[in-house]
Design a protein around this nucleic acid. Structure first.
Length: 348
DNA sequence: AAGACGTGGGT
DNA sequence: TACCCAAGTCT
């Protein structure tokens, strides 16, 4: 007979195996009464949306060093925050990060709301993040459902309904397991379990504290759960990027509109990205087309970017973008696709 | 309410 | 090479 899964079994496992993460207050310190700074919890949770821990770490360190409090971040210039986020992806997160910081600073006195509902009302905070902050920062018994929890619940209950259709039932399952005691540790424990033991491929069931209660283990189906709706294939789009160098070394750059792909980020002026992009030079110049192309894959399409370069005199007016002095430009301020175009032009 | 929205690492 | 995946949110 299969056992019933208990939160305490997972908490015992977490006490022994909790990972040490820069934004985490571990189980021992929490037991001693320590609580994480809500600002750091919030920042880490936004960065971790659809993003791996190794990718987040250096960005988290850089942000907290430069902007130690939510009020510091609220006072930052948009361009500085977008540049600091460059390379992390999903740039709407950075735009909403600033909106949220400013809402907290101006409408909440610099203090994060300490309720699920209050958090949910802030920009960039959805059901998952509101629950995570409520549980981790405020020790409220919020149910936290991310991709890890969906996977753990699907396996625990041998649920074969494909995602995203299964989301409501999986949420109910997660809610039924959420304890009133140590909800902050528990939220992190389920996610750690999903990230380390109950992993997407080759789950380490031999090490799992919930194996005695796992229906998928009993059925031998763990590795094939959760089921997911089939993916659509990505089309390929073409584009042209224009890299213009002024004789004093300044680069011609353009701030992209807030809405849409790479919204709010700096980039090279260029054509539309589609099946047959037309020429769209941002300045009168003698263009050189570089051999090869910058290839990049976005969430929903592949891009093959032709790079054209030109050197222009000081007094040449641009029809698009603005020249940025060499001393004020760093390729690390660019989203990855734009940095690839830069690398192609610099021969690296 | 599906689709838009990035990127890097693993297989 | 190509596909999958990672602590989702917004529209």
């Amino acid at each position: 007979m299969r056992e019933t899964a208990r939160a305490t079994d997972l908490l015992d496992w977490y006490d022994r195996h909790a990972r040490d993460l820069p934004w985490r207050v571990g189980p021992r310190a929490r037991a001693a009464g320590m609580r994480p700074d809500p600002y750091r919890v919030w920042l880490s949770e936004i960065m971790l949306q659809q993003t791996t821990v190794p990718a987040v770490k250096p960005y988290f360190e850089a942000f907290t060093a430069r902007w130690p409090t939510v009020s510091d971040l609220a006072a930052a210039a948009d361009a500085d925050v977008m540049a600091a986020w460059a390379g992390l992806g999903y740039y709407a997160r950075a735009r909403n990060l600033l909106k949220c910081a400013r809402a907290v600073a101006e409408e909440h006195g610099g203090v994060f709301p300490d309720s699920y509902e209050g958090l949910l009302g802030l920009p960039g905070i959805g059901p998952y993040t509101a629950g995570a902050i409520a549980a981790i920062a405020f020790d409220l018994p919020a149910t936290v459902v991310d991709g890890n929890v969906e996977r753990v619940m699907a396996r625990l209950h041998d649920e074969h309904t494909p995602l995203p259709q299964a989301k409501p039932v999986l949420t109910d399952m997660a809610a039924a397991l959420t304890p009133q005691q140590r909800p902050g540790d528990y939220a992190q424990a389920v996610m750690d379990l999903g990230a380390t033991i109950c992993s997407p491929r080759n789950p380490a069931c031999g090490l799992c504290p919930w194996r005695p209660s796992c229906a998928a283990w009993e059925a031998g189906t763990a590795a094939e759960l959760p089921k997911k709706a089939p993916k659509k294939r990505k089309p390929t789009r073409l584009g042209i990027a224009y890299l213009v160098r002024r004789v004093d070394g300044a680069w011609l750059l353009e701030r992209r509109p807030d809405k849409g792909l790479l919204g709010g980020m700096l980039g090279w002026p260029g054509s539309e990205w589609n099946e047959a992009p037309g020429e769209a030079p941002p300045i009168r110049a003698e263009w050189k087309t570089l051999p090869g192309e910058a290839r990049h894959t976005f969430t929903h399409f592949h891009l093959r970017l032709t790079v054209k370069t030109a050197l222009v005199p000081m007094d040449r007016p641009a029809t698009r973008g603005e020249f940025v002095e060499l001393a004020e430009f760093s390729p690390s301020d660019l989203p990855t696709v734009m940095r690839k175009a830069y690398d192609l032009a610099r021969g690296s």
